[in-house]
Amino acid sequence: MQSLVAGRRAAVLLCACAVSAAQAKPIAFADGTTVMAEYGAGTMVEAQAFYAPSYRFSAGGGYLRLDSDLARRSREIEYVRANVLAKRWNLDAAQANVFVWGSLGRGRGDGFDGSRLARNAGFQLDYETRRVYAAVKSDLWESPAFSHRIDTVQLGLAPYEHDYRDLATWFVVQARRYTGEIHRGTETALLLRLFKGGTWVEAGVTDDGKPQVMAMFNF
């Protein structure tokens, strides 16, 4: 029953915002809205929506569900988040960024009763040219009832250099580790990323054959 309610909530968020988030930038551009959703190989579902009044700051909310394949437990967190672009390097043919964020939310799970206040902090470092993309992201959640961290590394290569209004194609290798008894070992995935205009879609499979899908819309 609980999972049904959770599923409905996720669906509502997915529909209302159109979709989460790994390695996509939490701030796309000034006066821009970013909606993201990710399905992570049966372990993670996350949906987020942010509005950025400037290119250095965005705020919004999200929903995170984690299903442990070790302890057979689920955890859901609904949260509000602020993202800050701490540093940007605009190079001749490249850009590099440091993003940091913090969240407050309510966490529920089948390992404890009721809900708990949960706190979050994270960062992302990325470097991008029109042919190479590299990113490192870490996302830590803490509450009196649970603690976990999700670390993700992505390396992308584009077979051709896209221009504005072209379809951009990327082949991405991703490695991800979860702490907090969510998933044992490193989960690797091969992804195909396509984006055009304000729409970004990414899909692939993990090393154990599970699907991973992510979508992002900027407008």
């Binding site: 796309a28 551009f29 006066d31 821009g32 850009q95 504005y164 951009a168 205009g197």
Partner: peptide
């Protein structure tokens, strides 16, 4: 312009 590497960059500049 430096830092112009992706469609989202261009989208933000066009909007501005």
């Amino acid at each position: 312009v430096n830092g112009l590497v992706c469609a989202f960059c261009a989208q933000g500049i066009e909007k501005k």
